[in-house]
Design a protein around this nucleic acid. Sequence first.
DNA 1: CATGTGCTTGCACGCGCGTGCAAGAAGATT
DNA 2: AATCTTCTTGCACGCGCGTGCAAGCACATG
Lengths: 334, 334
Amino acid sequence: MLETDTITAEDVAAAAGVSRWTVARAFKKDASISRKTRDKVLAVARDLGYVPDLHAAGLAADRSNLVALIFDDFDNPHKLVILERMTRIVQQHGWAAITINSGGPDGATEALQSARQRRVDAAVMIGTEFDDELLSTATEARRLKKLVVFARESLCKGTISIHCDDERAMAEIAEHITACGRRRPLFLAGPETQSAGLRRAELFNASWTSRHGSPSPIVHVGAYASDTAYHRLLEVFGALGGLNAVDVVVCENDIIAIGAMDALRHGLGLHVPQDVGVVGFDDITLAAAPSYALTTYRQPISSMVEALVEILESGETPASVTALEGRLVVRSSL
Amino acid sequence: MLETDTITAEDVAAAAGVSRWTVARAFKKDASISRKTRDKVLAVARDLGYVPDLHAAGLAADRSNLVALIFDDFDNPHKLVILERMTRIVQQHGWAAITINSGGPDGATEALQSARQRRVDAAVMIGTEFDDELLSTATEARRLKKLVVFARESLCKGTISIHCDDERAMAEIAEHITACGRRRPLFLAGPETQSAGLRRAELFNASWTSRHGSPSPIVHVGAYASDTAYHRLLEVFGALGGLNAVDVVVCENDIIAIGAMDALRHGLGLHVPQDVGVVGFDDITLAAAPSYALTTYRQPISSMVEALVEILESGETPASVTALEGRLVVRSSL
DNA sequence: CATGTGCTTGCACGCGCGTGCAAGAAGATT
DNA sequence: AATCTTCTTGCACGCGCGTGCAAGCACATG
């Protein structure tokens, strides 16, 4: 790189024959500056390749225009969808996103501290590992301007939660299964510790029980990973009673659903959906692939990010909970 | 959040009975400070919950400890692998990563400018849309401290390129195919404009021709997307001569390979690898799924990121090219 | 032409910390 | 005990820009 010498507002001011502050005004919307000087300054700035230093601006204004996106894992492609929406929409509104890899639950404190050191306007926690207990004990969390829990309902004090209305979602799934004539669901949930925070198994059973009197069995998978789900299902399917006990597998997310489908088809030689139906959650890209054609529930990620932007732009820090409605995407797995 | 009042080095200094600069020294490795005062300061800092403000530090030292990761798309799960390694390893060395969504090639300039505004120590471009022509015409690129092109060879002046040794990779693939007895490869490449930068088709054919005399046909897919690849292969397979003309499909990446496998199996009713073999590139998680069991080539992402860290830590800005060796992962698709 | 109003512009001060130098403290030397 | 080192510590200045206020200006009014 050749011209690394940073060019400041001072330089532009000198070249345009105005003061440094006038240059700042030219770049500030709704600033009191005459049309003529603004145009002149902007033109000079363009020639010189000047852009305001957001770093210094943040320091002065105590507003970094930075949000931290803290992820607990990067295995689920759904994270990529979230990241895409998040970065794109947030950028459109003038923020930049710093992505922090917490590297597991133990790293949460460190991640939060790192966010604070960068003066982020908000830290967004994305991942089931970040449960309310962890958040309520993390003192770092108290020191952030805003703490948002994304894609999971959080009742933690001082925390802002933006998520899909899972209660409604699970009710819709229960209804769809019922409409398809299935009566023997098996709920395949994630790791017991993490899955609890999502409450999907619980919500599904609440809805299912209200319709059919008795709950569905729940089996936990050791990790949100297809191969783990694959082996887990093989392990329990026969023990539960095989086809006599299960005619549809409801999964906490698509990753598990993919593993379940592979297990049913390749491991047990069954047909989906003829023998056993499968329903997922998230609608990852792969769910639409002809090999899977998974019926799943799509979270309203874009709306959720819009909600985040609103919270970013609002001055106050309301300890709020926003639940948005997604939609069931019916394909051929049920 | 309750205690939003930022606590500065000044506060710690007062509480510890030293000057602000001594506090700074306590946090600086290899600083000239006595063991005793450092321990005292650090203890006070911990009690008060003080951590140095990296924002202000960056402003003062002209070093933000920030790198920008600029992505052109978020559809390929391989990006997630890169992101995970990138954030994790870079964090371990004291940097934080800001993720920028360029939203297509037109957004590259804007993304670069955004990176500059944040005073990043380096901007890393990840994606085939960022070709050398674009980079050489982008004046913003000249103003960054370091510009790194990741996972693609770049010969652009002033640019640092870190990538997998594709020449060797394609030679290994050609050798494997040959060893498996296949003699009629079809190369399924990405969009013509983007694929050119990767040069994989070209490199494969160089190797193939040297072994068997004549090159493999090359078919371009309109997008790096499975369904696009699916339809494209269906479209051209018969026209090329079907099984008489093709006994293995070599794909520019796994996403295309997945689409190709689906097309061969579900679209054409063929068997993989019995009728036609498939080889991919990247080794995404899905490649290991039993439904695909894709033979593919794994790029040495971790080593590549380590190389990036080395470049970050080295003061100079060598316009360098680093090509690292990956490895072929043989599964059952060939 | 004098006065008042509203729009522009300039500026002191501060955001939190790093750098380099000089003053001070502690230990070593004769 | 006096002096010299070496280690510690304090400080002026600056990084690039935002905020709030006051001075400057143009124009309209009487």
